[in-house]
Every structure is written in C-alpha cells, then in structure tokens.
Amino acid sequence: MNVGIGLPIGDPATLLTWAQRADAGPFSTLGLLDRLVYNNPEPLVALAILAGATSRIRVQTEVLLAPLRDTALLAKQAATLDRMTGGRLVLGLGIGGRDDDHQVTGIDQRTRGRRLDEQMAVMRRLWSGEPYGDDIGPIGPAPARFGGPEVLFGGFKPAAIERVARWGDGFIAAAALSWAGGLFDTARRFWKEYDRDGEPRIVAQVNVALGSEGVVHDAQANMHAYYTFTGMADRMVAGMLTTPTEIRDAITGFADLGADEVMLYCYGLDPNQVDRLADVL
C-alpha cells in the first residue's frame, strides 16, 4: 500500500518544507487541490516547483479542473512537467462544481463533462505525437511516457467513473471507507466493460490532522471554509481523522478494499504533521 500526502493550500510558502520532508520519508505522492476563485496556489505551477525541490516523490493534481483550461496549453504543460520530472506527474482530473470557477472562465457547467471528454481525446492524441489538426502540427514536448502521464479521474456519478475506463489509468475516490467500496467496484466494472487490460489504479483520499488541539482546529477551520459551498461542510469536517489509530485503521480498511494508494489530505498548516504521519506509518 502506497501512502501519499495531500498538501494544505493555505500558505504556498510552506509547501517546500512539506515536500522535502515527505520526499525524505515513506510517502509516495504529493497531492494538491485545484480551485480558481479561491486563495490557493495554482497546482501545476506549485507542483512544478515542488518537483524541482524533490528527487523521487510523485506530484499529483487532486483534481485539476480541466474544463476551465485551454486544452492544447494544458496538454503542453502536463507533458513538460511529466518529461522534466522523469515521469513523476500524475494528472488527476475532474470537472468541478463551483459556479464562480466556471463563471470567470466562461465555461458552461452544463457541458463540462462533454468538454472534458473532448479534451481527453485531443490530449491523448497530442501526447502520442500526432498533429493537432490537418493544418496544425504536433505540440511537444513528448511526455516521459508515450501517450501521456498517468491520468486519474475523480467523481461520484457513473458517468464520471466511466471516464476512468474510457480515457484514464485509474480512479481517485474522495469517499469515506463506509461507501468507497461501491465506487471502486463501479470503476472496475467499467474497466472490464471497456475490455481494458489489468485493473484501474485505485487511489483513496481521507482528510487528516495530527498534532495539538490548535493544529486540529486549524485544519477543521480551513476545510470548513473550503467546502462551505457544498452545504455539507459540517458533516465533512466531522469525518476528519485526528488520531494515529483512526489513520491506521483507515489505511488498513482501504487496503482491504483493494486500494493501491491512500492520500492523507492535510488542511492544517503545521509541516510537522509530515513527521507525525511518518511515525504513524
């Protein structure tokens, strides 16, 4: 079982410390959320800097809101980061659900799923070295892996999970242990229906805070602010894991469901949590 760390978004200046400590520890991946109309770092820019400050750990978007971005530019950015990190980029993609993010980019929320499918068709073609169109040539550089970096999709509805089998390499499930198993099974079922080889890579995500009462309260406040728009922030914050036993039990539970990786997502800013989480593992 691989275990990664989801980075806090409240203070970009601290993320180098988080990344370097995680790179020196037992962690597999650094993850970063994406919003546009919010006080968070842009994930591709931030992860590029963190990748340059580390040597082995993967960098992962969780999840990048692809429909908000220009397709050709996104393909070029992802290929560049993947190539320059020697294949350490994992591109987690989703469609997003915030009105303001879509309003400022002029993207119609009603067509965001269809737009993501169209984007994937173009990006897979570009990452394979094919021209953009009849009169427009290829867009490089070539990614580290032919066909593009590893792509994971997040989501809860069947249409979103089906995208894993149609375009992706795996599934990110930001779901509680009690109902994540059904989502995993759905991803595997679509994988077989599309006659894909092997199995999709399954990545679980849980929210954690480990430290003093102040660290936990900081994490809860930041997470609540981030998810206020859902109307379910109180319930989501209540599910945050705050003890070593809870975190170990969650990792074991997701392993029993067949997850390949668990991302421990942190909203509290204290970088000493990296060392505490390493001790838990």
Rank of each mutant, 00 (worst) to 15 (best):
A46E: 15
L89T: 05
R88M: 11
E193K: 01
F254Q: 10
G140K: 00
T85V: 07
T54W: 01
S128Q: 12
A53I: 07
I139H: 04
L93K: 11
D169S: 15
R114C: 09
V216K: 15
R88H: 14
L7C: 06
L74E: 12
P41T: 11
L281R: 12
A121M: 08
T111K: 09
G268N: 14
R166D: 01
G87S: 04
N207R: 05
A259M: 06
E199T: 08
V90N: 14
Y132E: 14
T17R: 15
D108H: 09
G253K: 02
A173F: 00
V216M: 12
G137T: 08
D197L: 00
L73F: 13
T105G: 01
G86I: 03
V237Q: 04
W18I: 06
Q119M: 11
S28P: 12
E150L: 08
F190K: 07
T29V: 10
N40V: 13
P67V: 06
A79C: 02
G133E: 12
P131F: 07
M232V: 03
L73M: 13
T85S: 15
T243F: 06
M232Y: 10
M232W: 06
G155H: 10
P244T: 14
I49Q: 14
W127C: 00
I136W: 03
F254I: 02
L89I: 11
L33W: 06
Q77I: 08
A51P: 05
W167Y: 15
A159G: 04
L47M: 07
A19C: 11
V63S: 09
R83Q: 11
L81G: 05
L74P: 04
R88C: 14
P138T: 08
G4T: 04
L16W: 05
R145W: 01
G198D: 00
L32S: 02
D82I: 03
A175F: 05
V37F: 06
P67E: 10
R112L: 09
T111N: 14
G96V: 03
